[in-house]
Amino acid sequence: MPTPNPAALEFLLTRRSRPSKTLRQPAPDRAALMPILTAATRTPDHGKLEPWRLIVLERAALDRLAGLATRQGEKLGFDHDQTEKGRRQFADSPLCVAVIEVQRASDKVPVIEQSYSAGAVCLALLNAALAAGWGANWLSGWVGHDRGFVTAAFDLAENERVAGFIHLGTETSEPPERPRPDLDAIVTWVST
């Protein structure tokens, strides 16, 4: 017979990301962030490859990346709104953790499974921050996918890419609930 954890299940059934634009200081300090990072890395990892690493972006780094986003957006010919969206992701963030996927050579673990593991770290980090009482949001956007930006920002190796930016801080307003998937439309039961 399984041993239920009703509090954990209730958290998962009611969890809600907080819009990044509503997050403010204070953000978790290093001591508060360590258990969140520890929980995030207790994630499925076929082959124990650890196909990810974490970069904690504090205020000075976030300001540097905001400037870099402006310059890179202009270099790419983006319109003002698109460039500004990339800039604000860092300029407005109280604290951010960049989850970096590290694709490792393996005869047993396909690259796609390593990508899934990096995505699982993102979700685990988001949920751990929310469970610890912080507001959190998982973003990507052009600043997560443009090779020129991520190389300049993080000096990524060829086998690395950004899986997501997890922004953390104190929530200033609780978001309204949003529609959730219709399980009858997406679940298939197979009995034979």
Rank of each mutant, 00 (worst) to 15 (best):
T172A: 15
R24N: 05
P94D: 08
R24M: 04
M34V: 15
Q114K: 10
R71L: 08
V97I: 11
V162A: 00
L54W: 02
L13V: 05
D79F: 02
A129N: 01
D45F: 03
E158Q: 14
R18V: 12
G133K: 02
C122M: 14
E58K: 02
F90L: 10
A98C: 13
M34R: 15
K21W: 08
L13I: 03
T43I: 04
R15C: 08
P175N: 01
V162P: 00
L57M: 13
A152Q: 13
P179T: 11
I55D: 10
E58I: 04
L139C: 06
A91E: 13
L183G: 11
R24A: 09
L54Q: 06
Q103L: 14
T188L: 10
Q25E: 14
D146V: 05
W138M: 06
T170R: 13
A66H: 12
A105R: 10
R88W: 03
A152R: 06
S17C: 07
L65G: 09
T22R: 06
L37C: 01
I36L: 13
A61R: 14
D155W: 00
A66T: 13
A32L: 04
Q72L: 01
A61M: 11
A69E: 05
L156W: 15
A118W: 00
Y116C: 15
D92G: 02
L33S: 12
F154A: 10
N137G: 10
A152I: 03
S17R: 02
P51G: 10
V97Y: 01
Q103H: 14
Q25R: 09
G119T: 15
T172F: 10
P181F: 15
G135F: 05
R53S: 11
H145N: 12
H167V: 13
D155S: 07
C122L: 13
C122R: 09
P176I: 09
V150P: 06
L95V: 04
K21E: 08
A152T: 07
G67E: 15
D92W: 01
A128S: 12
P4Y: 06
P175F: 00
R88P: 02
A31L: 13
R42L: 05
V97Q: 00
V187P: 05
R161C: 13
T22I: 04
V150S: 14
S20T: 01
E50F: 01
A131W: 05
L23M: 04
A40I: 07
A118K: 00
E171R: 12
G86E: 07
F90E: 09
L125E: 03
L139H: 03
E158F: 03
A39G: 05
G119F: 12
Q89Y: 00
L68N: 00
E177G: 14
P44F: 08
I55W: 06
Q25A: 13
Q25G: 03
E84K: 10
D182V: 13
W189R: 14
A66F: 10
H46N: 14
G133C: 03
W52R: 00
